[in-house]
């Protein structure tokens, strides 16, 4: 089967999942992942991130909906679809009694690939595991076990790599190594889908962001666009003389008096044509409020994420 290289590498349409106990984990998910992109799926605990990943990977059955991976239906053409995916799970599930070398060889064989010692050696060297190849997995530290899981996921040369909370419980060094490797994989054309609680990582790494809450995909957007559209800037004025309260007539500006009356915060939308800053400064001057310093800051992805989740909760309530 010839696959259109411009088509999405993952296409999910109307995916729902209700667990046996009646819990609705996913609601009508529509999602497209482009080839070669880094996609970050964000959401609070229990939002449905792992369920969605598990369904795409074939670990959990969807209640309804269709998913294709590299043009192959994950149910009808499960062999081709699953062969394209490598999964690094959230939990450190490892074959404790196996050696590192045996367990990565097992993974490669399980995914239908002929043995290839030079390739596996390269994977282990890239992950600084080569010296540990004869060690039993149970003797490794948590960080090293995480590396083993990554090596196992890469053992069959997948087109898509799922990283489910890969930074959980790993030290700074491994995190840096991991993100370096992710960038290299992306450069080679591998599509990366990650979930993370470290939103600054998503901000740093991802091309696109998806936010899921209570089983609903509430936003999927290019990271830069998302930050431009939903990001807000804040102007902080440090006052020359602290004040106890804002004078009457400034209510319409939605100002916040902070730091015991020493600063005034003004938030404005970056998407609007007029920021209102010149008018604000003039109005403050008219009210005799003088300032000695000003600085501006921008919303982080985390601020946007929190705001989206709060908004989603508000709509649900």
């Amino acid at each position: 089967m010839v696959v259109d290289q411009n088509s999405p590498i993952i296409f999910a349409h109307g995916v729902n999942k209700t667990y046996a106990g009646g819990f609705l984990a996913l609601k009508n998910i529509h999602l497209e992942i482009a080839r070669g992109e880094i996609f970050a799926l964000l959401g609070p605990n229990g939002a449905g991130k792992t369920t969605l990943i598990s369904i795409i990977c074939g670990i959990v059955n969807a209640s309804s909906g269709t998913i294709t991976v590299d043009g192959q239906d994950i149910v009808k053409d499960f062999r081709a679809a699953r062969a394209a995916i490598g999964l690094v799970p959230q939990e450190l599930h490892t074959d404790a009694f196996e050696t590192v070398w045996a367990t990565v060889n097992f993974s490669r064989g399980l995914f239908g690939k002929a043995p290839n010692a030079p390739y596996l050696e390269k994977v282990l060297r890239d992950l600084t595991l080569w010296d540990k190849r004869d060690a039993k997995v149970m003797t490794l530290s948590g960080g090293m076990k995480r590396r083993v899981l990554i090596a196992k996921a890469l053992a069959h040369e997948p087109l898509i790599l799922f990283l489910d909370e890969p930074s959980a419980g790993v030290d700074v060094e491994l995190r840096h190594d991991m993100w370096r490797m992710v960038r290299e994989l992306r450069a080679q054309g591998t599509t990366i889908i990650l979930t993370t609680h470290y939103i600054e990582e998503a901000e740093d790494m991802a091309d696109r962001i998806g936010v899921i809450n209570k089983g609903e995909l509430i936003v999927v957007e290019d990271k830069e666009v998302l930050m431009r559209k939903l990001g807000k800037k804040q102007l902080t004025l440090t006052l020359r003389h602290p004040i106890n309260s804002l004078p009457a007539g400034l209510e319409s500006w939605s100002l916040i008096l902070a730091e015991g009356g020493h600063t005034v915060d003004y938030r404005y939308n970056t998407q609007e044509d007029e920021t209102g800053i010149p008018e604000l400064l003039r109005t403050l001057g008219e009210h005799g409020i003088d300032f000695k310093d000003l600085r501006s800051s921008e919303s982080s992805l985390e601020d946007i994420f929190v705001s989206l989740i709060q908004q989603s909760r508000g709509e649900a309530a």
Partner: peptide
């Protein structure tokens, strides 16, 4: 029990 079944379930094996 160990959780490693995720790999078997996600593998292209019938």
């Amino acid at each position: 029990w160990a959780g490693t079944i995720y790999e078997l379930l996600s593998a292209p094996v019938s």
